[in-house]
Each structure stands twice: as C-alpha cells, then as structure tokens.
C-alpha cells in the first residue's frame, strides 16, 4: 500500500528539509541587494524620456490653443474642398466609353430598306 501512496507528505517534507541544509550565502546576497536598494532611483531611459517630452509638448500646444484651432469645425471646413467642386469636375463622366462586359456578341441590325418610289406599295 505504501507504493500507491508514495511520495507522501513525509517524502516531500524531507525534500524541503534537505534543501534547508543547502548553503545560502546571505552576506554576499545582502551586499548586492543593499547596493541596489540604497542606490538613487535610476534616471529615465530615453524612450520614457522621449514619451514624457512629447506629452509635455502636446500639452503645451493644447494649452496655447494651437491644437484646438485645428480641431475647430470652421477651420476644418475651411480646409475641405467644396463638395460640388470635388465631385463635379469638368472631366467627370467624360472618360472613354467602356466596352460592354457582358460577353454577348454585338447585335448587327439589318440595313434599313430604301423607301419605295411613290405609287408602289
């Protein structure tokens, strides 16, 4: 029955106890941790610094009203082309005639017969 129950709590606790005998160099580790803990906070790296700078510039522009002007409806309307001018240009619709794309052969009409002389029916 032991076979079926193994490894049980005792085996795993013994493994944990064995690991407690593992030598741990806490002094050397503490020297490293202490140095990192007491070191002043690291300066921002360049991507973070660049993001902060961009955000600062954007905020400054927003404050000064430059960005707001671009977002004004009147400003946007001034930049946009007039609808008619954009849609109805002189060349609009004046392109070459496209051939029929149906694949149906073109119908050939019989020539119109010449009018009969007067008095003939």
């Amino acid at each position: 029955m032991t076979q079926a129950r193994w490894p049980d709590d005792r085996a795993l606790q013994a493994m944990a106890a064995a690991l407690r005998t593992l030598p741990v160099d806490t002094d050397r580790a503490w020297a490293r941790v202490r140095a990192a803990w007491t070191r002043p906070a690291a300066r921002l790296r360049w991507p973070a610094a660049a993001s902060v700078s961009l955000a600062a510039v954007f905020l400054a522009l927003a404050q000064s009203g430059v960005v707001r002007a671009f977002a004004q409806p009147t400003f946007a309307a001034g930049l946009a082309p007039a609808p008619r001018a954009a849609v109805l240009t002189p060349s609009f619709g004046g392109g070459p005639t496209r051939p029929a794309a149906t694949g149906v052969p073109e119908r050939v009409l019989a020539p119109t017969p010449a009018p009969l002389p007067p008095g003939r029916s």
Binding site: T2, Q3, W6, P7, D8, R10, A11, A14
Partner: peptide, 16 residues
C-alpha cells in the same frame, strides 16, 4: 515513479 519502476516503500524508508 510508477512508470519509472521506483520502489516507493524502500524510497520512503530512506527518506524518513
């Protein structure tokens, strides 16, 4: 351990 064919009883005796 069953797959590896380890004798659990003997192992447990060693462990404890």
């Amino acid at each position: 351990f069953e797959t590896a064919g380890v004798d659990g009883e003997q192992f447990l005796a060693e462990v404890t």
